[in-house]
């Protein structure tokens, strides 16, 4: 009984922590998937969309697929691919999801694969990490926390030249431009 109560308390504490503004983005694993360094970036006022980025590694023997997810700050989430084709930016929803093959590490990054937060409920502000959920075909739903980089950041650690002082909790990485 006591153990169960303790376990329940821990679960509640953990899930509260996941949504608390003070939470920091951390690597998470679900089954044979490892999701590292999820991040998004501040959006201009009036923006209704934002991109979410991370690296997903499949250490298992079976392929899995990122098929969707959700975030409390967005109406919905889509899995997208962006590419440049002779000066034209092309973007499309990956209708069958993003496959992560066994042993493969897939990078979701600006200019490439990303999750797209649609119908933002408010602009995303730099700083406080945001909680969300990703949905995989096999691994199921996985809770993640996105670090929030500055507006127009090209990487999670890209803090820009003007606000280098904001570079906290970035664990030894250095921004590049």
């Amino acid at each position: 009984m006591r153990l169960q109560a303790l376990r329940l308390a821990t679960t509640i504490a953990l899930s509260v922590a996941a949504f608390a503004p003070a939470a920091t983005a951390a690597d998470v694993s679900a089954g044979s998937l490892a999701i590292s360094a999820p991040w998004t970036r501040a959006t201009p006022p009036g923006a209704k969309v934002a991109g979410g980025f991370m690296t997903i590694t499949n250490t298992g023997k079976e392929a899995d697929k990122l098929i969707g997810g959700s975030a409390p700050f967005a109406g919905r989430l889509e899995v997208h691919e962006m590419s440049m084709d002779g000066g034209i930016m092309r973007m499309q929803e990956l209708k069958n999801g993003l496959e992560i093959k066994p042993g493969q590490s897939v990078q979701l990054k600006p200019g490439s694969f990303h999750v797209m937060f649609m119908d933002l409920k408010q602009p995303i502000a730099e700083g406080a990490p945001l909680a969300g959920t990703l949905k995989f075909e096999k691994a199921g739903e996985v809770k993640v926390t996105y670090d929030v980089a500055r507006l127009g950041a090209k990487s999670r650690d890209d803090t820009g030249s003007t606000d280098a002082g904001k570079d906290t909790q970035k664990g030894g990485h250095h921004g590049h431009h």
């Binding site: 201009p44 923006a47 969309v49 991109g51 990303h114 127009g152 090209k154």
Partner: peptide, 14 residues
């Protein structure tokens, strides 16, 4: 366009 997650805000910032 403003419903653009990547290249438009990046270009505007640049």
């Amino acid at each position: 366009f403003t419903h653009c997650p990547d290249i438009c805000p990046t270009t505007l910032l640049e």
